[in-house]
């Protein structure tokens, strides 16, 4: 196969997969698969969005749950109070998350390495404390907020969210791919490699970091808004979940944080493993399946600490050069 065909194949396959995923609900599958799809696409979108700041620039935020929750609460409140559709207001949720990111970003992005990670973790933990202690009429306090269901049957409902989350996953991935391959992404990479050196060749690190942080927060806020409507219930413990903040980091790192494919692969693998452990072995106690899940994480990262994509790339390259050597010998 020549190189041109290979390249066409490389672009065609992902789009074919997306098309297949898009038409999948029209074959009336079991509703379970649609639910898995919603969660899978959501995590792909979240992890890809996180990767723009966390992977490309190396500023590993552990507080993205805050942006997710802000988006979710915005959507829930606007629907309950004014009846605005979440499919529109999710953009507002994203904007609010972005504004919040802009405000906290200036001070927090001055911190380096683990200090940044831990400060964002604290932010992620602090925001829900504020939300839960706001007046009950506003955020529902400890009870949370209930939203009206979409007036359609459950299958149509799932299909709608399935398709929207699929679209969000595709959009987030495309944005993250664009970000990596653009001037913006190269600048972020330079910051990750060595921030002060990057400055001395003209990289405006402050502005780039803030832009990446805000863009990332916006996307996560939008996704949070859609998720809120999917669940029709928001509560600080569900939409400001620290586990979510950590999961999206782990997914990106597992797949390969320096690449745009990494989060897609990492999220897919972890969600599928999770689902298999839960549903394929119904007799398996939940904690045992969690334990196996942890074990897989440990083993995978031990052998592929730079992420799966990196590992595969190195393997492909070594195979290619081995094949090349064989050709020469013939």
């Amino acid at each position: 196969m020549n190189k041109k065909n290979l390249n066409i194949l490389k672009t065609a396959i992902p789009w074919a997969v997306i098309l297949l995923l898009f038409v999948f609900p029209f074959f009336k599958p079991d509703i379970f698969f649609l639910s898995v799809g919603v969660i899978l696409f959501m995590y792909i979108a979240l992890s890809s969005s996180w990767n723009i700041i966390g992977g490309y620039s190396g500023y590993m935020s552990f507080g993205h749950g805050a942006f997710f929750g802000i988006g979710a609460y915005t959507v829930a409140l606007l629907l309950i109070e004014f009846g605005y559709s979440p499919f529109i207001t999710c953009v507002l949720g994203g904007l609010l998350a972005a504004v919040f990111a802009l405000i906290v970003g200036y001070p927090v992005l001055r911190l380096k390495g683990p200090y940044f990670s831990l400060a964002t973790l604290c932010l992620g933990l602090a925001v829900p404390v504020v939300v839960i202690n706001m007046p009950n009429e506003l955020t529902g306090g400890a009870t949370g907020l209930f939203m009206p269901l979409l007036p359609v049957d459950i299958f149509v409902n799932r299909t709608i969210f399935y398709e929207i989350m699929l679209a969000l996953a595709v959009i987030a991935t495309l944005i993250s791919r664009w970000a990596l391959q653009s001037k913006f992404g190269l600048g972020l990479n330079a910051i990750r490699e060595n921030e002060s050196t990057a400055e001395t060749i003209g990289v405006d690190s402050t502005r780039l970091k803030i832009t990446a942080f805000v863009l990332s927060a916006f996307l996560v806020g939008v996704i949070g808004g859609i998720f809120a409507y999917y669940r029709t219930y928001v509560h600080t413990t569900t939409v400001f979940d620290v586990n979510l903040s950590i999961m999206i980091v782990v997914m990106a790192l597992l797949g390969g944080a320096a690449t745009w494919q990494g989060p897609v692969l990492g999220a897919t693998i972890l969600i599928i493993i999770d689902q298999i452990l839960i549903s394929a072995f119904p007799g398996l106690p939940a904690e045992l399946s969690r334990l196996i899940y942890g074990l897989i994480l440990v083993l995978v990262i031990m052998f592929m600490p730079k992420g799966i994509i990196h590992f595969v790339n190195v393997w492909l390259r070594s195979r290619a050069s081995a094949a090349g050597a064989e050709e020469v010998q013939k």
Partner: peptide, 8 residues
Amino acid sequence: ASMVLCFG
């Protein structure tokens, strides 16, 4: 890498 490892 250690963060993923230790999280696991």
